[in-house]
Amino acid sequence: MALRKDSLLGLAISLVVTLTGQSAIAFTINFSSNGRFDAFIYYDEYGYQGEAYLEQPQEIERGGTNELWQLLNSFSNMYPGRWEFRRAENDLQGSFNLLNYYICGPQTTDCGAEIQDPFSGGVGGMLELLYYPVLLPPGDPIPDPTGVTRRVQWIQRVYSNHSLEPDDQHGLIENILDIDLGQTTPYYTGHAGNGFGIPPYRFFGDVPYRIDPAESHFWDAELYLAEEMQDLVTRKRTVTIYNGIKWGWRNNSRPKISDDDGGGGGCTGYSGGGGCLTAANTNAAKNRELPLSDFDSGDPNQLPEKVPEPTTIFGLLALGAASTIQILKNKFNKQ
């Protein structure tokens, strides 16, 4: 939920058409030349070790997934006659400026410092972006949430294996709209620019974080831009769901086995032998700037996508992805 201690504040990089080289959607993603884009980090702490990495962003079809709609329908049923949700008829027009997207391990002392008091000692990720709408001329037939004449909001669905409610419990599945407890709207209320009275761009920032790095986690989010229109007589709110992206992170932790235990200095059976992830052989991958198109989703059957030359700014982040992806794939295939 937004604005909660030890929690996910959620962020969104919006997307992915550019990442896959497709052109079906009219918006693009741009990377800040001063941004932070660390995709993988290895950690070796007292009693455990592991690695954490970002999930490859994926395009979500305009209008949202069935899983999102199950949550939206449940929400509207709580307020009969007050909310109606619709799928947009046209894709978004505009661009997303990705400011930061990086992974955090226990040794990261400044996780989320760009937008809040930083986290440390746990695992998580940080995503920060701006959406720049296309300011369309009057009478243009393509609707676009510009933020100037319409109320534009962010809606985020979170799915993870460590629910923060009701009692911050690892192993309890979380499948929620990312809103505060008791909130009566479906909109993300964390670090985000929504509603009237602000410049045309829309800001979104999130730091999903867990404070138990000795446990293995998955944390996935679907982030959408939505437009609200309200009937001033009936007070009914109609919300149109536009395009979105899926983003998130993973960490895999395992107990360390010491030399005294016959484990060969901490390389455990989880690595499958010959596939041990150590500080030495991950030094080149740790904190490296990797192309987002080469992020590993955690699916051992996934093949890394090739980014065609010249795909916008991905050349910024382009060196050394293959070795990191292969390390992660070897690990998952051996488990």
Rank of each mutant, 00 (worst) to 15 (best):
M1D: 12
L3Q: 10
K5L: 08
K5R: 08
S7C: 10
L11G: 10
S14P: 11
L15W: 05
I25H: 11
T28P: 03
T28F: 04
I29R: 08
S32R: 03
S32G: 10
D38R: 07
D38M: 07
A39F: 08
E45Q: 11
E45D: 07
E45Y: 03
Y46V: 13
Q49A: 10
G50M: 05
G50T: 05
L54K: 07
Q56G: 06
L71Y: 01
N73V: 04
S74C: 09
S74Y: 11
S74F: 10
F75Q: 00
F75E: 02
R82S: 11
R82N: 14
F85H: 00
R86M: 01
A88W: 03
D91F: 05
D91I: 06
G94P: 05
G94Q: 00
F96W: 12
L99S: 04
N100W: 11
Y102K: 02
T108S: 10
T109I: 13
T109N: 11
A113Q: 13
S120A: 12
G121L: 07
V123F: 07
L127Y: 13
L127K: 04
L130A: 07
L130S: 06
Y131H: 04
L135N: 11
P137Y: 00
D140P: 02
D140W: 06
P141E: 10
P143G: 01
V148R: 02
R150W: 00
R150V: 04
R151D: 03
R151T: 04
Q153F: 01
I155E: 02
I155N: 01
R157Q: 03
V158Q: 06
S160F: 03
E165W: 13
D168W: 07
D168C: 04
D168A: 08
G182E: 09
G195N: 06
F196C: 10
G197H: 09
G197L: 09
G197C: 06
I198C: 05
P208N: 09
D212G: 02
E215A: 15
F218E: 06
A221N: 09
L223A: 13
L223E: 06
A226H: 02
E228S: 06
T234M: 00
R237E: 02
I241D: 01
N243S: 14
N243D: 15
I245Y: 02
K246E: 10
W247Y: 14
W247E: 12
W247K: 07
G248E: 02
G248D: 02
R250Q: 07
N251R: 02
N252I: 15
R254K: 09
S258Q: 08
S258K: 06
D260G: 15
G263R: 01
G269E: 12
G272W: 04
G273C: 11
G274V: 15
G275T: 12
A280E: 14
N281G: 06
N283Y: 12
K286E: 14
L290F: 14
P291R: 14
L292G: 10
G298T: 12
G298P: 04
D299F: 10
D299Y: 12
P300N: 05
N301L: 15
Q302A: 15
Q302E: 15
L303P: 05
K306D: 11
K306F: 11
T311P: 13
T312Q: 13
I327G: 08
L328S: 05
N330M: 06
Q335K: 14
